[in-house]
Each structure stands twice: as structure tokens, then as C-alpha cells.
Design a protein around this nucleic acid. Structure first.
Length: 591
RNA sequence: GGAGCUGUAGUGUAGCGGUUAUCACGUCGGCCUGUCACGCCGAAGAUCGCGGGUUCGAUUCCCGUCAGCUCCGCCA
């Protein structure tokens, strides 16, 4: 390489006119006019036009004739101001151009499978196969730069607040509870396996035992579960733990952190404190533990009314511990039969066996169910739902969870359909007072809603040994942004007796608890401070900052829905020798 | 494990029981000294994802399968 870069492309501005510069980068576009060639040169910083004129060097011009898109070149030239009528408003460097007197082709390029510049409309599988080209696109570079800025801001803020960044093992111990583990066979311990961490949970608690007081880590986590637009098998968390802080301290700290990060990375003001609502209120009003509060359309409970009515379908469900709830789709009385059918199908995804409706017009109520209700009952329904002519009321009667799920999602679906959501709003909130436990129907036992190290709320501890364990509230909290859970945490149990009690409640024998978590409980006996913490999903947070619908857009090398990497072709076979060393025999189903 | 959507030159697409398989961008060649979505002329480029079936004939219809995506289950 004879030509050594002197400037970044983006530095090509009017103030440097007349200077001799050397730029390096990729050929974004070549426009060959025969006697004059324009090349848009792109580096990480931006794009600038380079002009090749045979008068400035015949050899240079001949070389320029041969270059193609995505060639890597170094160009030496002089910066000229463009005449005003030749400004290119679309380019950040559009007021100048470089007159090249020398060029060096550093590398050639095959014709790329898709265009590098613009908004891609290429199938994602092609993008993933050629991810190194996809990542060249300014859009993707913007996303990764944003990610960098967000993480940098996190580090800066926490460093200021006296936190220490500490690393924890990637090869660790498999634990029951939670997601499926990724396992790693141990060569030196035949038949035994490490697990990749689902999160650094226990290590960070042990760092609190060890007296580090304020810990954080940008930690990779692994969970072998099925993928979604916002779920990858490996993902990045801001993992955090503090000692001697109460819940309020922790929430405030994290509100300030997020506010700082959005300011630094996006230059957006995020006012604090955030709204806080209880889990119960979230489920009751929005049918979700991560409600999107950018719009209303709350769920209204009609169970009591339904139970006393003559409408048998509703009444029986309401009397048998089910619920009857409804939402008011304001102004949707014009929905067609098909649109309502589609909403019914949509509700069915979440287990709703039906979707009853009332179409409210000026002079009547069109509905298959109105006839089952007395006039006062209809009136009460209308007033509960604040119904007016033009509205569409949608009812689901079922088990509480199905009612919440189906109406909760319906609420969002309709809001999207009606464009009720302001895409520029950032609606942060805390959901607090989660239940400690949830009933696992398959296992016929309780499991921890957050994780088994979460502390119950002090006044609910006495319920642990009663049959009302399902009512115990946890010292747990989630941060929600625009209907997406971006972080969650809790105050932890820090006394051995309480932790043992918790394991028993989860149906774990003392022996099993000792075998799996004995080291933690032993540690609790050596002066463990009260502590708690939180973990943010960095991928999700950056996804929302970048206004994307998938975390794959903010992850450089993501996996497909079937957890494969289309570029490397991982996962793949390994040699018989490798398996043998690991003492592994395959037991595959015949194809 | 399940439901839905998608699959046609390098890319994005049109199409339909019988076509020379459409168009655009890109690519290649020629011309072009002010373009920046350069322009003009010309050319090449498609096992219509794969397998099977129905049919005289399938890219088109049916079944299966594979891949990608969205979702349910799952994910403390």
C-alpha cells in the first residue's frame, strides 16, 4: 500500500478546500462518462465524490476505468469546492469533491449479490448468508454504532456511580429451573458437562457476598429455547447487582441510567421517575405484564354482571372462576363481518374459544348476544365500557389467563390497525409486585416466576407455609418500554433459612437443593449483605432505540429461527475423533 | 411440537394447465467531459426451492419435503 490515508471521508468539507488528501474506502458507485469518471467513495464515516479527469493523469484515469463497485481503493487528490448549482444535498460532503491525481486499487471485488447502499428489500436469508456485505450498509453500521454508544454510556454512567465491571465464567454449572441449558461436554471429566450461563445470576450474588457492593457486566447469556423476533439463543444483558440498597434506590438508579443512556446515545430526553404500576393492575387493565401505555383501550371486567345474567355461556364461565371482560374499539362499528372474523381468529391464537361483539350505532346495537341480556344489563355494559355510537365492543369469556392474553393482544392489534400508537413516544414504566410463584400445571408444583432467588415481600413471607403461597408477592420489578420488557430484577434472598424455605416451596428436596445450590447457601452463612439487582436486555433496548422490529437488526451475526448461522453454517457435524475425545456417542433417529 | 405467510435470472418482481417465462435494477460490451437513481445502443443471464402425484401436457393444481420469516407452546 503506497498511499496512506490522511483523512476520513466525512472530513471532506468546505473548510479543507485546496488541501491535498489521501482517502481510502470502497467504491460505492462509478459513473463513467467516457472522458470523465465520477466515483462515490465510501468509508465508515460517509461518502464523497471523487472526480477522475484524464488531464490529471492518464494512468490514473485508465485505472479508474477498470474499477467496479466495492473495489477497495486509495485515492490521492485535491479538495475542490463545487459550484453552488452542483451541490449534492443528499451527501454530507456534497459541497466539495476530490480531483484525483493518483489511485491505488487495494483489492478487487466480485459483483456483490445485493446492492450495498440503500434500503434493502432483499430476503433476510441472503443478507444473513452475506452478513459481511449486509453489515457494510450504512443502515447496519448506524445500528451497530448506536449499540456501541449505548453500551459506552452504560459503562460511563456506572463507572461514575462507583460500579465495578467484573467477568464471570462462561463454562459453568447446569441448574434446574429456568430455560434449557446449552451444554458443553468435559473432555477431562468423562460424562460430565458444563452449561453456558443463562445469566450470571449466582455469580453476581456471590460477588455481593464477596463485598464488591456494586457490580455490573455486559454479559452474554445463553438459553436453548425457540427463537422469536426479539429472542436469540445468545443475547447480551447489562447484568447488575448492588448491596445495601432498597428497592426504591435500585429503581431510581436504573431510571437515571436509562435516561443517561438515551441522552448520550440518541440525544433524547427521558424524564424520570417512571410510572410504576403493579403486576395486578397491568394484568387487570391491559391483559399483559408488559403493557404498552402509549394508548388506552383498557380491559373492563364484566364478570360480576355476567354471573348474574341469563346469558348461560357467560354466566357459567363467570361462576366457575372464569372471567368475562371486554374492550371498546372506539370508532370501529364499521368493521366488516370479515374483519371481526379475523379478530376472532386472532383471539383464538391465545386460546379464546370465541369473541363476542356489540356494534353500537346511533339507534341500535347489532350483536348476537344482546338478546340474552336485560335492558339494564346492556346499559351497564355500555356505561362500563364508556360506549358511544360508532364503537365496537369485543368480549372474551374464559379462564382469566386466556381472557388477559387474548384481549391484551387484541388491544394491541386494534391499536396498530387504527394507528393509535405514536411511534415517536418512549413510554417507560415499572411493573412491580410480581407474584413470587406461578403454578406449573404439568409438574403439579409451583415454580418461581422470576427466579428462585427472588425475595418475597416481607409481609407475605408468612404465607409461604400456608396454602395461599400463590398469593405471595415478590420484591421483583420489570422495566417496560412501549410494551416490550427491556429489563427485570429483584431484591434477593440473602438468608439461608429463607432460601431453603423457597426451595422447599418449589418442590425441591433439601438434598437436591444442597447438591445444586449448596455453595450459594453456604455462602449466605458468611455475612451476606442484603442485595438486589437487575438485568437489561441490551439487544431489545437497542432495537427499540433504532426503531426496529427485530433484535437481529442490532446483532452483527444473528441466528435464524432454527438457531443456525447461514454464514458459517453452524451448527455442524464434528469429526468422529472429536466425539471420541469427548466420550460422546450419537443416537440419531434414522431419516 | 403446532398454526400462518413466502420461495420464479445476481437482486426485487409479473405471470399462468400449453408463453420464446414479464419487467426493473444489477452484470458484460460499445458510445459519452459534469454526473450524483447519469444517459443512449446492444448482449448475456432462470433446472420457476426440492421430490412425488393428477394430466396428453405442471412454474401454474394436489400431496410431501426443505429453507426463511411471523406467531402459539416454550423462554425463571
Amino acid at each position: 500500500m503506497k498511499l496512506k490515508r490522511t483523512h476520513k471521508v466525512i472530513e471532506m468539507q468546505e473548510n479543507l478546500v485546496g488541501e491535498k488528501v489521501i482517502l481510502t474506502g470502497w467504491v460505492q458507485k462509478r459513473r463513467d462518462h467516457g472522458g470523465l469518471i465520477f466515483v462515490d467513495l465510501r468509508d465508515r464515516s460517509g461518502v464523497c465524490q471523487v472526480v477522475f479527469n484524464p488531464d490529471l493523469g492518464a494512468e490514473t484515469f485508465t485505472t479508474a476505468e477498470q474499477i467496479r463497485n466495492e473495489y477497495v481503493i486509495a485515492v490521492q487528490g485535491t479538495i475542490y469546492a463545487r459550484p453552488e448549482e452542483m451541490y449534492n444535498e443528499k451527501l454530507a460532503t456534497g459541497k466539495v469533491e476530490i480531483y484525483a491525481d493518483s489511485i491505488e486499487v487495494l483489492n478487487k471485488s466480485k459483483t456483490p449479490p445485493f446492492s450495498i447502499n440503500d434500503e434493502i428489500e432483499v430476503d433476510e436469508s441472503v443478507r444473513l448468508r452475506y452478513r459481511y456485505l449486509d453489515l457494510r450498509r450504512p443502515e447496519m453500521q448506524k445500528n451497530l454504532i448506536l449499540r456501541h454508544k449505548a453500551i459506552k454510556a452504560i459503562r460511563d454512567f456506572l463507572d461514575q456511580q462507583d460500579f465495578l465491571e467484573v467477568e464471570t465464567p462462561i463454562l459453568t454449572k447446569s441448574s434446574p429451573e429456568g430455560a434449557r441449558d446449552y451444554l458443553v461436554p468435559s473432555r477431562v471429566n468423562p460424562g460430565e458437562f458444563y452449561a453456558l450461563p443463562q445469566s450470571p445470576q449466582l455469580f453476581k450474588q456471590l460477588l455481593m457476598v464477596a463485598g464488591y457492593e456494586k457490580y455490573f457486566q455486559i454479559a452474554r447469556c445463553f438459553r436453548d429455547e425457540d427463537l422469536r423476533a426479539d429472542r436469540q439463543p445468545e443475547f447480551t444483558q447489562l447484568d447488575m447487582e448492588v448491596s445495601f440498597m432498597d428497592k426504591n434506590d435500585i429503581l431510581t438508579l436504573n431510571e437515571n441510567l436509562i435516561s443517561f443512556v438515551f441522552k448520550k446515545a440518541l440525544d433524547v430526553e427521558v424524564p424520570v421517575p417512571f410510572k410504576r404500576i403493579t403486576y395486578k393492575e397491568a394484568i387487570d387493565k391491559y391483559g399483559s405484564d408488559k403493557p404498552d401505555l402509549r394508548f388506552g383501550m383498557e380491559l373492563k371486567d364484566l364478570s360480576e354482571l355476567a354471573a348474574g345474567s341469563d346469558f348461560k355461556v357467560f354466566a357459567e364461565i363467570a361462576k366457575k372462576g372464569g372471567q368475562v371482560k371486554a374492550i371498546n374499539a372506539k370508532g370501529c362499528s364499521n368493521f366488516s363481518r370479515k374483519e371481526i372474523d379475523d379478530l376472532t381468529k386472532f383471539a383464538a391464537i391465545y386460546g379464546a374459544k370465541g369473541l363476542a361483539y356489540m356494534v353500537i350505532t346511533e339507534d341500535e346495537i347489532k350483536s348476537p348476544i344482546t338478546k340474552f341480556f336485560k335492558e339494564e344489563e346492556v346499559k351497564e355494559i355500555l356505561s362500563t365500557l364508556d360506549a358511544a355510537p360508532g364503537d365496537l365492543l369485543l368480549f372474551v369469556a374464559d379462564k382469566p389467563q386466556i381472557v388477559a392474553d387474548s384481549l391484551g393482544h387484541l388491544r394491541i392489534e386494534i391499536a396498530k390497525k387504527l394507528n393509535l400508537i405514536d411511534e415517536n413516544e418512549l413510554n417507560f414504566l415499572w411493573v412491580v409486585d410480581f407474584p413470587l410463584l406461578e403454578w406449573d400445571e404439568d409438574e403439579k408444583r409451583y415454580s418461581a416466576m422470576h427466579h428462585p432467588f427472588t425475595s418475597p415481600i416481607a409481609e407475605d413471607i408468612e404465607l409461604m407455609t400456608t396454602d395461599r403461597a400463590g398469593e405471595i408477592r415478590a420484591e421483583a420489578y420489570d422495566m417496560v418500554l412501549n410494551g416490550v420488557e427491556i429489563g427485570g430484577g429483584s431484591l434477593r434472598i440473602y438468608r439461608r433459612e429463607l432460601q431453603e424455605k423457597m426451595f422447599r416451596l418449589l418442590g425441591m428436596s433439601d438434598e437436591e437443593a444442597r447438591e445444586k445450590f449448596g455453595y450459594l447457601m453456604d455462602a449466605f452463612e458468611y455475612g451476606t449483605p442484603p442485595h438486589g439487582g437487575l438485568a437489561f436486555g441490551i439487544d431489545r433496548m437497542v432495537m427499540l432505540m433504532a426503531k426496529k422490529d427485530s433484535i437481529r437488526e442490532v446483532i452483527p451475526f444473528p441466528k435464524t429461527q432454527s438457531a443456525t448461522d447461514l454464514m458459517t453454517n453452524a451448527p455442524s457435524d464434528v469429526s468422529e475423533r472429536q466425539l471420541k475425545e469427548l466420550h460422546i456417542k450419537l443416537n440419531l433417529k434414522q431419516k
